[in-house]
């Protein structure tokens, strides 16, 4: 705008005040500015501040208690289990969904027939909600009537797979459902990245006689680094938010064996009436997002400014 304006400004007799310039656009952007400043910045700061106060049933901005809430949080068994579950779920689901997504993308990239049909089938769970996903797998993994019983009926009497009744492995039951729902999306992302790679790379490696799997590991994957990083950030942000899947599939059970931080926060705030702990826990969630986000933002945007 500024460049095109320079010719006209000399002719203009009176310049309108800066504030009123482009007024319609500013008015139109008010909802966006409100969302950015009041909700995203304002509410986040509000929560962080109140995590240092003794808020119980109601927020108590004047009762400053320092790090008390955080100390209690990290001393609580339920929170520690939530964190452990999140770590197991997060790590497994990162590794598995990236591996499965990549292998599927590579298979679909081999110029196969029925590509559209297969992609449609692999991606459809992503259109379903976590509640539907959780309930479907809750039924399949039902210990009395589900997969376990069906396999036993066929004749394999000793077959045991009851993650939803077994506190030690319940989080893997949730993991199976999570992978089923989300891996198609990772595949689509990686496939898009793979299609972006120059066809000549393949021609060159074929001429050199390099086997396809080696080409994938040593040439294609390094070339797809940006796509992998994006996928990584998206999956991680999704993992930290895992809530409805657990609520629907296990309700956190058996006992508290499949609790996750997002569920812990909601329960502390709206059921246990311990807002302070809830705020502290949600601030920890924010912190874990920042650990992923800041290096990514630095790599993605910081490099461009300098370069």
């Amino acid at each position: 705008m500024a460049v095109t304006d320079t010719g006209q400004t000399k002719v203009r007799a009176k310049r309108p005040s800066r504030l009123f310039k482009n007024m319609a656009a500013k008015i139109a952007a008010i909802p966006m500015i409100f969302t950015a400043l009041v909700v995203f910045v304002g509410c986040t700061l509000w929560t962080i501040y109140h995590s240092f106060t003794r808020s119980r049933l109601l927020p108590a901005p004047d009762k400053w208690v320092g790090l008390d809430n955080y100390e209690r949080l990290w001393g609580e068994n339920r929170w520690l289990i939530s964190i452990e579950n999140l770590a197991i779920y997060g790590l497994c689901s990162l590794v598995l969904s990236l591996t499965i997504g990549f292998v599927l993308a590579a298979l679909l990239d081999r110029k196969i027939r029925f590509e559209n049909t297969i992609r449609t089938i692999i991606l459809y769970p992503f259109a379903l909600s976590f509640v539907v996903t959780g309930l479907a797998w809750q039924w399949i993994l039902n210990p009395e009537l589900g997969l376990q019983n069906t396999v036993r009926n066929i004749g394999w009497e000793s077959f045991t797979f009851d993650p939803l009744n077994n506190a030690d492995i319940v989080i893997y039951g949730v993991l199976i459902a999570g992978i089923w729902q989300g891996s198609g999306f990772v595949m689509v992302l990686l496939l898009a990245g793979m299609r972006g790679i120059d066809e000549d790379v393949w021609k060159a490696s074929r001429v050199e006689g390099i086997p396809a799997w080696k080409t994938y590991i040593f040439i294609v994957i390094p070339m797809m680094r940006p796509v992998f990083v994006t996928a990584l950030v998206i999956i991680s942000a999704g993992i930290i938010k895992v809530y409805d899947l657990v609520v629907a599939q296990t309700s956190g059970g058996p006992g508290i064996a499949s609790e996750v931080p997002a569920k812990y926060v909601i329960e502390k705030m709206f059921q246990a009436q311990n807002l302070g702990l809830g705020f502290a826990a949600s601030t920890m969630m924010l912190l874990s997002v920042l650990v992923v986000l800041i290096p990514w933002a630095y790599l993605e945007f910081g490099g461009k400014k300098n370069g």
């Binding site: 950015a36 995203f40 910045v41 509410c43 986040t44 927020p59 924010l286 986000l293």
Partner: peptide
């Protein structure tokens, strides 16, 4: 600036903003 805040805000866990809302 507002736009950048908006985009980064998309990564903030909802749990952080739910109660103030």
């Amino acid at each position: 600036v507002f736009f950048t805040i908006l985009i980064f805000g998309a990564f903030i866990p909802y749990q952080v903003m739910i109660y103030p809302i």
